[in-house]
Design a binder for these strands. Structure first.
Lengths: 111, 111
DNA sequence: GCCACTACCTTGTGTCACAAGGTAGCTTGT
DNA sequence: ACAAGCTACCTTGTGACACAAGGTAGTGGC
């Protein structure tokens, strides 16, 4: 979640849809909204209401400095955990980069 | 867990200790024993009591054919998930193989 | 006999993902 | 105008799980 918000602010419904594009990360609103609430309570994200061009207003989430720190910590932990699991499983570490362009926070806005 | 049992049968306490050697996988008996119970209930592992050379008897766990299938399925899911997370995080996929010799099920017995 | 170590297991607590359901704004069709 | 449908938010209830803590018992050393 924090990584998706790293490049630019996004709103909840958008996050559900973006994650849903990859089957391995598919999740639901019942997961995302409580998660965003927790992140907000822990001051890792800030929120801001913005009008939608068409439809109800959207609640945008943006990383705080604390959120950036937490993300950096998590990145390190993830690499440690990932390599440990790969070690136990004996799974090769290839670079599957076919999907990153779709969902990675690329600061683009060509939607 | 299944991967650790792939090469040879192991007992619960041993698994806790082996996992504890890697900080990223450190866990406790309160986690491992219920997990092994679940795997047994789902017929992914079989058990067998064996005498210990010194100390109380040990309950050894061994993969069943179903367990092997489940492990194969998990390996695939793990690679998909791992690559998805790496894609979102933008973490490079290097081969950290420094630790695998310590814990990977290598069918060795030189302890 | 007592302590320490090995080795098993259970109970209680808190967290979390998810399905399901609820509210409300906006647009489109009739 | 009003219904239907989409967008977008959120809550409640359920079940799974990790973990800390505590409990039982066999073995060996002092």
């Amino acid at each position: 979640m924090l990584a998706l918000l790293e490049g630019e602010a996004r709103y909840g419904f958008e996050l559900v849809q973006r994650l849903g594009q990859n089957p391995a990360l598919l999740t639901s609103e019942g997961t995302i909204y409580p998660l965003l609430s927790r992140l907000h309570r822990e001051r890792l994200v800030e929120t801001e209401w913005r009008e939608s061009p068409a439809g109800p207003p959207r609640k945008y989430y943006r990383l705080t400095p604390r959120g950036r720190e937490a993300l950096a910590v998590f990145r390190q932990q993830w690499v440690g955990f990932r390599d440990a699991v790969d070690g136990v499983l004996g799974t090769p570490q290839n670079g599957g980069d076919t999907w990153s362009a779709t969902v990675k926070p690329t600061t683009e806005s060509g939607d």
